[in-house]
Each structure stands twice: as structure tokens, then as C-alpha cells.
């Protein structure tokens, strides 16, 4: 049998926690980035702008990205954000690789890690070729 004083303490604690929660949840949502905005949008690029071996920097869904026209293998779209600490990788055309200027992480043209500290490959974005257009996303 719970005493009246104990019961009131539980009720008060419950009310306090509810009040705190009803303040903290909106605060957390307020500071959380708006997810999904524009993620359904596709980006169209004229493929004639990118010769074989060439590249084009784009911003796709807020992520700095790069389109590469690989010799023999065709187009690929990769995020330029290094998976180590978020620096932007540089495309080294002559060496057919990407190099991160921060910790010298090296990726091949498929985005796979060749050497250095990056823990994962560069994210790749979906790409379709429709006539002269590259449809990304």
C-alpha cells in the first residue's frame, strides 16, 4: 500500500518529467537538420560537357560531388567528401586517382580506398544516361 505522500511524490515526479520531456523533444527537433529536403530531386547534366578522362564538379543533395568520364568504363558520380575526416578529395587525372589533401587518403576511380586512413569507399550516386543527358539520383 503506497502512502499518500509517496503517491504525491510519484505524481509530481511524473508531471515534472513530462514537462521536461515536452520541452526537450521540441528543442531536439528544433536543432535537428531537416532531413530529406530535396532528396527526391534529380540532377541533369549534359554529358558532352565531360570528355573522356574529364570531370565535372557538382553539388548533389548538398554534397559536393564529382562526375568522371572514365576511359573504357564510362561515367560515374561519386561524393567528393573523404570518408576519413570530411575534406574534399582532388581528382588527379594523370594518376587516375583521387587524393585527399588532409591525410593523403587515396581512392581509385571507382571510389575504393587504395591507401591511407579512410575507413570506407567514396559514396556513389545512381546515374542514368538518357540521350545526351546524365540523370543523377
Amino acid at each position: 500500500m503506497i502512502a499518500r505522500r509517496g503517491f504525491l511524490q510519484i505524481i509530481l515526479a511524473g508531471l515534472g518529467l513530462t514537462a521536461l520531456g515536452s520541452f526537450l523533444y521540441p528543442l531536439l527537433r528544433y536543432f535537428s537538420p531537416t532531413a530529406g529536403e530535396g532528396e527526391a530531386e534529380k540532377l541533369i547534366v549534359d554529358k558532352r560537357e565531360i570528355p573522356v578522362g574529364g570531370s565535372k564538379d557538382i553539388l548533389f543533395h548538398g554534397t559536393p560531388s564529382i562526375i568522371i568520364n572514365r576511359p573504357q568504363k564510362g561515367f560515374i558520380v561519386l561524393s567528393k567528401v573523404c570518408t576519413h575526416l570530411g575534406c574534399l578529395i582532388d581528382y588527379e587525372k594523370a594518376k587516375k586517382r583521387f587524393l585527399c589533401p588532409c591525410h593523403a587518403g587515396v581512392f581509385d576511380l571507382e571510389g575504393n580506398v587504395v591507401s591511407g586512413p579512410p575507413p570506407a569507399p567514396l559514396p556513389q550516386f545512381a546515374l542514368k544516361i538518357e540521350g545526351d543527358n546524365l540523370v543523377i539520383g
Binding site: P33, G62, T63, H84, L85, C102, P119
Partner: peptide, 25 residues
């Protein structure tokens, strides 16, 4: 570089980084 450090942690790392930045970058 510094705000990217939490991405080392599985599951919550990416969220923590975005929470700090208010966006993916």
C-alpha cells in the same frame, strides 16, 4: 575536420555530425 570526428562511431556518428552542423556539410 573537427566536426567530422563523431562519424567514427557506428550508428549515431553521422547523426551527431549533422546535429552539430545543422546540415550534412
Amino acid at each position: 575536420i573537427v566536426t567530422n570526428m563523431p562519424t567514427a562511431f557506428p550508428y549515431i556518428g553521422d547523426y551527431l555530425t549533422e546535429f552539430q552542423r545543422g546540415s550534412s556539410q
